[in-house]
Computed example of a mutant assay.
Amino acid sequence: MSSYKKLPSIDAARRRLLFHIGSVAAAGAAGALPGVTFAQSHEQATLASGSAGYTWALPFVAESAGYWKARNVDLKVLDFPTGRDSMQALLAGSANFSTTTDTPLVFAVLQGLKPGILANFSRYSYDMKIVAREGSGIAADKPASLKGKKIGTPAGTSGQYALAKYLEFAKLSAGDITQVNLAPTDLIGALVRGDIDAFSWTAQAGNAALRQSGGKAFFLTQDGYEKFFRSHQLLLVNQNTLDTRQALVNDAIGALLDAEKRIAQDPAWPDLIATRIRSTPAEVKQATSVFEFKVGFDDSFVDDLVNQAKWAIDAKLAPAPAGDLRALFRAAIKDAPLSAAAPDRVKLA
């Protein structure tokens, strides 16, 4: 049986987060960070990043290429271990924006919190991997060999949702494995020591596991997995920023659109962010080859949010809200700024 326990409330996690970032939180309340004053020529803004990994390649290009600065915005970026943690900083009022994947967003909305989705800027099906260790009894080409194994992943993240969909892909259920809630920084050590048999996390973590295990780790097959899983990378905004900093919100959209164009037109764009994410340009280019970089909203995105919500509710990981799920998630999408900047990028019913 699965040993996974229901996630703690985001409110509780937020209190823990505030203990560690109280000095940052003191800069503003409910998203009201310092903006333009008579003594300042630039706007001040804070973005909480879901990690320092290539998952956030597009906003990192916007940062490194100077697209915020070109709009007279001094952007402070705070790196967090996961998108769940960065979103909590946003909700706690320590940032104007945050980057996260769709899974933490789904849990937050189901718990009645109100992060706004300002942009859906990239997506993938293959970057989240199942990585196993030699001697675990798991076969790379046999997804069903996960049955009876201990698998680590950070709870409340795309890693957890990817694992659930991989089990579906393997024709297994959550009760067929033991899920172990581990922080991203603990996954590789736990695998190498043999504390777990496999983990569900990024290809970047998987490659690190291969190196640190001396080649005694491997990726499981994903042939056909795209029919089961897709992850969206999002820029979130809090309501206070949306209500009181409209020029800043428009600048954020413009910076992302400029970064998307740079990625599409400049083959050397990985050079801009390789140092930022402690990697090489070649590794960045190879890893992000499975990403689609395009800022936009469409109905398939809402479909994916609703399907994740149904999974979370059915698995008793989140409460079922009153009302229609589709209407709930459609209301979380703040598409007016993108519609104004690029009307063709918003195709929502």
Rank of each mutant, 00 (worst) to 15 (best):
F219N: 07
A164Y: 15
D79C: 02
G152D: 09
H20R: 15
R14C: 05
A119K: 04
P184H: 08
W201V: 00
G93H: 05
T202W: 00
Q160N: 14
P319V: 11
A57R: 06
I188M: 06
A315Y: 12
Q179D: 00
G31C: 00
A341Q: 13
R71D: 10
A309V: 10
R133N: 09
G22K: 03
Q308P: 09
A349M: 10
A255I: 08
R245C: 00
T221D: 14
G66P: 12
S94I: 04
G135V: 12
G83T: 05
G135T: 14
Q246G: 01
Y4A: 03
I21E: 15
V306H: 11
A341C: 11
Y225G: 11
G31W: 00
R245N: 03
L248Q: 02
D299W: 12
T221M: 15
D79V: 08
Y67T: 03
L317R: 14
I10L: 15
A247W: 04
G152N: 09
A217N: 12
D251F: 07
T185I: 04
Q308A: 12
L118Q: 14
I333W: 06
S122Q: 03
N181I: 01
L105V: 11
A26H: 02
F229L: 04
G66D: 06
V131M: 08
P59K: 02
L113A: 12
S49K: 01
L191M: 10
A312D: 09
L272Q: 03
R16G: 15
V284R: 06
A331E: 07
Y67R: 03
G215L: 13
S9N: 00
